[in-house]
């Protein structure tokens, strides 16, 4: 997963629900120095009996916001969605010659 262009990540999930698996795996895909490099990561843990679905909100460097319903997606689908915009940003960066 391309994480260079992510600036803000908000995750909420109930660890006891099987559908929160991809939200948790998404957090494990972030590089170890993500927070040190200025990415804001907020993860909110819901109590065990809450029925609220798992949610993932992402902000990109160009300001685009992406809200995903991760409880209905597999982790590969989540990375696909995120990478789709990241690749556009990567191409723009490359064309700008930086």
């Amino acid at each position: 997963m391309i994480t260079r262009f992510l600036t803000d990540i908000r995750v909420q999930f109930n660890p006891f629900s099987p559908s929160s698996k991809s939200a948790r795996l998404f957090l494990s895909l972030l590089p170890p120095n993500a927070r040190a490099d200025g990415m804001k990561i907020e993860s909110k843990m819901l109590p065990r009996n809450s029925k609220e679905p798992a949610r993932l909100g992402i902000k990109f460097k160009d300001g685009k916001e992406l809200n995903l319903e991760v409880d209905k997606m597999r982790i590969t689908e989540v990375t696909e969605q995120v990478d789709r915009h990241s690749r556009i940003l990567a191409r723009q960066e490359e064309l700008a010659g930086n």
């Binding site: 660890p15 006891f16 957090l27 993860s43 843990m45 109590p47 065990r48």
Partner: peptide, 16 residues
Amino acid sequence: MLLGARVEGKVFDMEG
């Protein structure tokens, strides 16, 4: 991240 606990065979969440 703390997920939960197993105390004497029972499952507890963060609050527990």
